[in-house]
């Protein structure tokens, strides 16, 4: 089963990368008022049960993929075929 984890800097936390990207986009003439830069982790899971997989993914995020103090995360499970 495939899963994608999106990790973002928590709202309210200054994101210097996002600020730099925003500045560059504005310089290019794009009408952009905000940019935040996060991280995407694509995973290939051995587990086929989606409930179990979600629980596993939560643990992965808490233990490694995100730092809960500064980052939020979102889990997307691929539709089962």
């Amino acid at each position: 089963m495939r899963a994608t984890v999106l990790v973002r800097p928590k709202p309210g936390i200054l994101d210097p990368q996002g600020e730099a990207v925003l500045g560059s986009l504005q310089q290019l003439g794009f009408a952009v008022d905000g940019a935040r830069v996060g991280r995407v982790v694509d995973l290939e899971l051995r587990d086929a049960d989606s409930r179990q997989a979600r629980a596993e993914l939560e643990r992965m995020c808490e233990q490694l993929l995100a730092n809960p103090l500064i980052e939020s995360y979102e889990i997307e499970l691929a539709q089962e075929t």
Partner: peptide, 16 residues
């Protein structure tokens, strides 16, 4: 900090 032995976190410098 990552190990939880100290509080807080270290992030990219504001200046990048």
């Amino acid at each position: 900090c990552e190990a939880g032995l100290l509080p807080g976190a270290l992030r990219a410098n504001h200046s990048l």
